[in-house]
C-alpha cells in the first residue's frame, strides 16, 4: 500500500511537470542570424569559435512537420529529390558539404551555396527557413525521435524521419558538382 502511494505521488509530480507543446502562429524567428556562422572547424588567429545558434524548432513536432510540408511546397525535391539527391546533394546521408549544424543549414538556405544552391533570402520568411533547417536535419536522424515526422502522406522509398537511424555527420569536402 505504501509503495502504491509513493508511486502515485511520484506520478502526480511527474504529470505536474508536463508541459503541453505550445503552438504559436506569430513568432519571431527562433534565433536572429549571427553574421559569423562557422563553416569549418578551423579558426584563424586562435580564440574561441563563434557560438552556435540553437534551433528550438528541432524539438517541436509541429514545426518539423511544417518543414516537411514546405520542403515539398517549395519544390526542394526538384533538386534534392526527397532527400535522395539528384541535381543537388543527398540530404538523407551523413555527408555535409557546408556543415550539418542548424545555423549552417539556415545559412545555406538563406544565402545559397556555390554550384547550384540558390539564395532564398527575401523569398522564404525567416521562420520557415528555420523550420526547413530543422526538417533537413531530421532527414538523417539528427532531430529528436519524439518530434520528427512519423509518416508520409504518400508512398515513400525512405523510412519516416523518426525511424531514420541517427547518422554521424561527416564533412563531405568538395561538393560533387565542383569536381571536374
Amino acid at each position: 500500500m505504501r509503495t502504491e502511494l509513493v508511486v502515485a505521488a511520484a506520478l502526480l509530480v511527474a504529470v505536474a511537470g508536463c508541459k503541453r507543446e505550445r503552438r504559436t502562429f506569430r513568432e519571431s524567428p527562433p534565433a536572429s542570424m549571427a553574421s559569423d556562422v562557422a563553416v569549418s572547424d578551423l579558426h584563424p588567429g586562435g580564440g574561441s569559435p563563434p557560438e552556435r545558434s540553437i534551433n528550438p524548432y528541432e524539438q517541436n513536432a509541429w514545426a518539423l512537420n511544417e518543414g516537411k510540408w514546405l520542403f515539398s511546397a517549395y519544390n526542394c525535391s526538384g533538386c534534392h529529390a526527397n532527400g535522395g539527391g539528384g541535381m543537388g546533394p543527398a540530404l538523407i546521408d551523413d555527408e555535409w558539404s557546408y556543415g550539418h549544424e542548424a545555423d549552417q543549414i539556415y545559412r545555406t538556405i538563406l544565402e545559397g551555396r556555390p554550384n547550384g544552391m540558390p539564395a532564398w533570402r527575401g523569398k522564404i520568411p525567416d521562420q520557415q527557413i528555420w523550420q526547413l533547417a530543422a526538417y533537413v536535419r531530421s532527414m538523417s536522424g539528427l532531430a529528436p525521435k519524439d518530434a520528427a515526422p512519423s509518416r508520409s502522406d504518400h508512398m515513400s522509398a525512405n523510412p519516416p524521419e523518426n525511424a531514420t537511424p541517427r547518422l554521424t555527420p561527416k564533412n563531405a569536402g568538395t561538393p560533387p558538382a565542383a569536381v571536374q
Binding site: A73, Y74, G122, K123, I124
Partner: peptide
C-alpha cells in the same frame, strides 16, 4: 515579384506561377 508572394501565388501574365 521581389517579395515572398511568388513562392505560393500565381498572377498569370507575370513570372509568378506557384500553385500553393
Amino acid at each position: 515579384l521581389r517579395a515572398t508572394c511568388t513562392q505560393c501565388h500565381t498572377i498569370r501574365g507575370t513570372i509568378a506561377g506557384a500553385a500553393m
